[in-house]
Design a protein around this nucleic acid. Structure first.
Lengths: 291, 291
DNA sequence: GTTCAAGTGAAATAAATATTCCAATAATAC
DNA sequence: GTATTATTGGAATATTTATTTCACTTGAAC
């Protein structure tokens, strides 16, 4: 173990960086230890060498060796950085954001903006679940469950939400089609909607023409329609069998997507769980019939 | 010292309450100690008996006596509650979600799931800004500002983030190209990268092959690379000029995208603000020259 | 003022925790 | 295959840290 003269990290951040760069040069056990520490920083901050070693499934010596090879005199010295991280990151969030704001002279605008965004989106998420009607959720899931396939439509900003929904649905084994308009083929994609399917449209002000067309098309063909939008007065709302109205954060006149994504995520996974249950049931009944 | 049979507090809150009610009945030194502890909870959580005693200007024995008179077997036991407070307020999210899960029974219905999602994502947003290094943010923005165009790469789950970034960049008048692989043209899209551009790659475990290729390509052509990923040990990190490590929420083994989106949003808009400033400046200088 | 109990501080002790050391093992070079 | 070096686990040791003890002080009751 030839030891390159190493500068000892002075902050948790530096330590994190050092661990990443040195990771490849470490031995198997030391890598295992490093990974555990990066993954469970607060465990490392508070537990004893013996406990951490046990959880990381290595021996205490290994922890000390890792600390040494990262330039520390001993493990305790390294642990101090993990502790400082706890303390640095703990302070009451609202206080902290105020502090960042007031210290505007020193902190770069970008950091301040990040705090504002995070805070605005956080606030939105706090409200979201209580503003979504449980019955609507269940109704939407009923529709999705019955549908052979789900067409998902979202233009411009909403496209992000639509593509995430398509991704998530595919991952719970629900056939999903993203109405993307790729190749100028909106019309063709809409024609592919059968009456056994369902349409999910996401649309925010200013409501894209295409989204309305999609809903009209679906209506004609008799598909159930679910809409995620930003107002009860949205032109999309009138088409819908189920409407979800979400309030997105707005900073510097840019609107977020956090709430919509959170909702679609919950929808997709709830659907997945329903399907799992239904399948289990089917298997059980099958077994009872042919024992 | 007649000892009223005392129930030992089980949480920091209970302890806080107990200290308040018992305060009047304590002796002078014990009051002094109690006051210090309530005023400096995080000091108490992490320091040793000797250090705390010194700071509170009492002797170590006093700390132990206080702990005993509050129903604890020793000081260490009491300190545990101070530590749990640290952890509870800056929790490991997966642990916390697990707590919600187990508390609500086995079959969470859709609404419950929505609450879990919202809560998990909210928690993630709380920690996000303090975990992003301000210098990295500025460095990334420098790179973006200098770049003629920004190529944005994200496969599978990260595609959502990449497409949002592309959208947002376009809205702040920054030329942005989404490396989508559409029509099997990854190669061609990568070839379009010039050395005056920059590459932003978003990639989460399991890291898509294509994302690594994009970084390799950019490296060869001498483009600066910015990476958003989920671990310092990500294979992408080694390519990057700037790495952002974000911690996404996980519910039912589905990971969210909230933190990444929040970060990209902040990046895009910060960039927009910088550009605005630069333009204003240019106009002013222009006017001074030709008044 | 004397007596007694509660309170206190400092040193002694006990417990816990971290670190070192060495023998055993695994990996690498020859 | 054998020699050599790096790595590892576990026991032995050193260190730190908590707790106990006891002599001393303070304050209240008579």
């Amino acid at each position: 173990m030839q030891q390159p003269p190493q500068k000892q990290p002075q902050s948790y951040r530096e330590l994190e960086a050092l661990m990443s760069t040195e990771y490849a040069t470490l031995s198997k056990r030391l890598q295992q230890t490093a990974r555990f520490m990066l993954d469970h920083p607060q465990e490392v901050a508070l537990a004893t060498v013996a406990k951490i070693a046990e959880q990381a499934d290595v021996t205490p010596s290994t922890l000390i060796r890792l600390a040494n090879s990262l330039g520390f005199k001993g493990f305790s010295e390294m642990q101090q950085l993990f502790r400082s991280r706890l303390v640095d990151e703990l302070p009451n969030y609202t206080e902290r954001i105020r502090a960042v704001r007031s210290a505007t002279g020193e902190t770069p605008d970008s950091t301040q903006l990040l705090w504002e965004f995070a805070d605005a989106n956080r606030a939105v998420l706090e409200q979201l679940p209580s503003r979504i009607d449980p019955e609507s959720l269940e109704k939407a899931l009923d529709i999705f469950e019955k549908a052979h396939a789900i067409h998902v439509m979202g233009a411009r900003r909403s496209f992000v939400v639509a593509s995430y929904m398509t991704y998530a649905l595919a991952h719970v084994d629900k056939p999903a089609l993203l109405v993307s308009g790729l190749g100028g083929m909106y019309r063709e994609q809409l024609r592919a909607m059968s009456q056994h399917d369902a349409l999910l449209t996401i649309s925010f002000s200013p409501y894209a023409e295409e989204s309305q067309r999609a809903c009209e098309g679906a209506k004609q063909r008799g598909l159930p329609i679910i809409v995620i939008t930003d107002s009860h007065l949205s032109p999309l709302a009138s088409f819908a069998d189920v409407v979800f109205v979400v309030n997105e954060a707005e900073v510097k006149s840019f609107r977020g997507l956090t709430a919509s994504l959170c909702l679609t995520q919950a929808l997709a996974i709830s659907l997945g769980m329903r399907q799992d249950k239904a399948r289990e049931k089917a298997i059980q009944q099958d077994q009872q019939r042919n024992p």
